[in-house]
Design a protein around this nucleic acid. Sequence first.
RNA 1: CCAGACGGUCGGAUGGUCGCUGCCUGCCCCUAUAGUUAGUGGGCAGGGAGAGGAAAGUCCGGGCUCCAGACGAAACGAUGCCGGAUAACGUCCGGCGAGGGCGACCUUAGGGACAGUGCCACAGAAAACAAACCGCUUGCGGCCUUCGCGUCGCGAGUAAGGGUGAAAAGGUGCGGUAAGAGCGCACCGCGCCCUUGGUAACAGGGGCGGCACGGAAAACCCCAUCGGGAGCAAAACCGCGUAGGAACCGCGCGUCUUCUUGCAAAAGAAGGCACCGUUCUUCGUCACGGCAGCAGGUUCGGGUUGGUUGCUUGAGGCGUCUUGGCAACAAGCGUCCUAGAUGAAUGGCCAUCUCUGCCGCAAGGCACAGACAGAACCCGGCUUACAGACCGUCUGGAAAU
RNA 2: UCGGGGAUCGUCUAAUGGUAGGACAGCGGCCUUUGAAGCCGUGAAUCUAGGUUCGAGCCCUAGUCCCCGAG
Length: 130
Amino acid sequence: MRDAAPALRVLKKRSAFLAVAAHRKRWVTTAFVVQAAPQVSGGDGEPEGESVPVIGLGLTTSKKMVGKKAVDRNRARRRLRALAREYLPLWAQTGHDYVLIARKDALTLDYERLKRDLRWALGKMGLGRD
RNA sequence: CCAGACGGUCGGAUGGUCGCUGCCUGCCCCUAUAGUUAGUGGGCAGGGAGAGGAAAGUCCGGGCUCCAGACGAAACGAUGCCGGAUAACGUCCGGCGAGGGCGACCUUAGGGACAGUGCCACAGAAAACAAACCGCUUGCGGCCUUCGCGUCGCGAGUAAGGGUGAAAAGGUGCGGUAAGAGCGCACCGCGCCCUUGGUAACAGGGGCGGCACGGAAAACCCCAUCGGGAGCAAAACCGCGUAGGAACCGCGCGUCUUCUUGCAAAAGAAGGCACCGUUCUUCGUCACGGCAGCAGGUUCGGGUUGGUUGCUUGAGGCGUCUUGGCAACAAGCGUCCUAGAUGAAUGGCCAUCUCUGCCGCAAGGCACAGACAGAACCCGGCUUACAGACCGUCUGGAAAU
RNA sequence: UCGGGGAUCGUCUAAUGGUAGGACAGCGGCCUUUGAAGCCGUGAAUCUAGGUUCGAGCCCUAGUCCCCGAG
């Protein structure tokens, strides 16, 4: 155990989502889109006294990308949340915010496939941790 | 057994593992306190709970919250056989009328067309105070190698027949007649009156009329009943923060009487009449307020963030329960607590079991919970979507006895 | 959450309750050496399901989809 497990913090404000999107760093897989941006220290971030490194997580499931049924959007969001909670603290660099945008295939693809895609996307963006 | 009608119930289960959101208990920290203790604070551990029959569409009705001074009328909207249930309803129950089905049963916006206005295209002679195109009958006059039951013209009568149309002004039969006609009669229909049953819608019976009354109100409309507006992003509190603005429009300083002060001008008080303002689109009556630099309207500028409450115990669910009622339902008794999120939890992955579907003669194999679908203040309904399973009552048919 | 509007040939757009019309595009022909333009002809539609009516694009009810507005 090199350092303490990073804490997950949920993005709650529209401005935070827009800030991540404006950074224009993203990678697309069949089931989802990953957007990432370094956290702004001074802004609405947590105080610096935080001992544990922080990873920000935001989820987007739109009617346009996933489907018009609320059941499908809920399912896609929950699968992506489970994926992110399990593997982002292991694989992603701390001090960044990540936004996952679900696509239609997030409903049907294997969980193992989602895992590989997430790791691959993080590596391609240069934000992976061995 | 086959076909069908109606009503109801359910709509995966068990386990492992990693997580999420409230609640309860215990411990630790923080804050307050001298302390006991307290907390709307934070963390950890344990326990227990965690989407639906439609959560959906947002089509009705309420509760609740805020806004508005009261009432009435108009306007607008909704409903529309009768009775009942209900907090209320456009819902439900029971009945009536009409229509459909062999039947169980199903469907039904079903008030008013002498209060009024308008419509009924095309076709047809005529489409609503009826009407004479072809016909039918007949009077008068003319015509003739044919004097007829012929033919032509003018007039009168006629709604039986033809033809048009969705609809042609009661239907069928008999009488009647020059031919016909509710012209007369019988039955049916229609209208009015009386009467019996029924709370009523309505149904049965009797009499009279002699056809007068076409359709359509899901055309406008009339009548009756109901409805103030907005919606939990309502609303309240705490904290932070901005501003206590600017421009334009509109309105307004009244008048009379009495009293007091005063020589007077004038000032003050009370009352009346105007005027202005206050509820919802308008109007009216009443009430309240005002006699002043301020209440009103429009536009611009600024701002529109965080937390707590509202927030889940309620017109609540369940019962081979009791009583009343045909029923909807009501009353009583017993019992249970059963989601409260807010960038929004109720999940991810795996295994087993049945159920289902497909392939196969079969053993078996494959897909593997597969339908519709996710709470957002809460209830009662309606409507729409739905794989499959089960239960009950009844109808028609077949077979057996 | 609340409110408003709409759906007609492939596209745009008309139609007092009475034969669904027009333009562009398409297809065929004429003209031309060929094409364009022009001329002639031709196919093609009322969002869905019920109801009222003799008759519905129009009226009523329910549903589907789309657009707009307010907070």
